[in-house]
């Protein structure tokens, strides 16, 4: 597990706590609503650490816990604003803007391919027309997964550039590798049908890059 980066933050409390706070805000901003376990997994914390950070943020009015039927934590408007402000400040302080922006451009070159692959996973061309992939053709599925692995390999330099610029980005490499390993071991919901699937984590990374660079969708 990657330790949180030691960096100054204006929020009250020790640096580590403040970093947890920003990392948690970040997870909710980029991944959407999530329960405590998913936040912990995404940030790389234990569940009690994540819960403690979430409660601190809730006390500050930055996150809120939603009731059933779709329970989970989400950002408040104030949380969104605080996240944007802190993220922008952290980026300027780190001096990493140019490096992140350059990595983002390379990410954008790969992104359409990822979406092609998700489509290929869900829709299989039959006689030239796409049909729902019922996963009855192991050769085809293996071919698609090979392409995922190839894309993941080619994305490795982007992951490392991002992690070198801002260490928290390394979690994406870990999570994407994990999703791919699971999918290749037969847990195919980790391609595009799980909250920790390759597609979901990749989309979070995309959203994270947009949020970090302050680029509107």
């Amino acid at each position: 597990m990657t330790p949180p980066p030691p960096a100054p933050d204006a929020a009250p409390g020790p640096d580590a706590d403040a970093d947890h706070g920003l990392a948690v805000l970040h997870t909710l901003r980029c991944g959407g609503h999530a329960d405590t376990g998913r936040v912990a997994e995404a940030v790389g914390l234990t569940a009690p650490e994540a819960e403690s950070a979430l409660i601190d943020l809730a006390v500050d009015g930055l996150v809120t816990r939603h009731p059933a039927p779709f329970p989970g934590w989400g950002l408040t408007d104030a949380g969104r604003a605080a996240h944007a402000e802190r993220t922008a400040r952290r980026l300027e302080e780190s001096g990493a803007r140019d490096a992140v922006a350059a990595a983002f451009e390379r990410f954008l070159e790969l992104n359409p391919e990822l979406l092609d692959l998700c489509t290929a996973w869900q829709l299989k061309p039959v006689d030239g027309t796409p049909a729902v992939n019922d996963h009855s053709d192991p050769d085809y599925d293996a071919r698609v997964l090979d392409r995922f692995a190839d894309l993941h390999r080619r994305a490795a330099p982007v992951y490392s550039e991002l992690a070198a610029a801002l260490p928290r980005f390394d979690r994406y490499r870990v999570r994407l590798t994990d999703a791919l390993d699971r999918a290749r071991a037969g847990a195919t919901e980790y391609v595009a049908d799980h909250t920790a699937s390759f597609h979901t984590v990749w989309a979070e990374l995309h959203e994270d890059l947009l949020a970090t660079l302050g680029i509107p969708r």
């Binding site: 901003r29 980029c30 959407g32 979901t200 989309a203 979070e204 959203e207 969708r217």
Partner: peptide, 8 residues
């Protein structure tokens, strides 16, 4: 368009 923010 949609993003992970919209998954819920």
């Amino acid at each position: 368009e949609t993003s992970p923010d919209d998954v819920r």
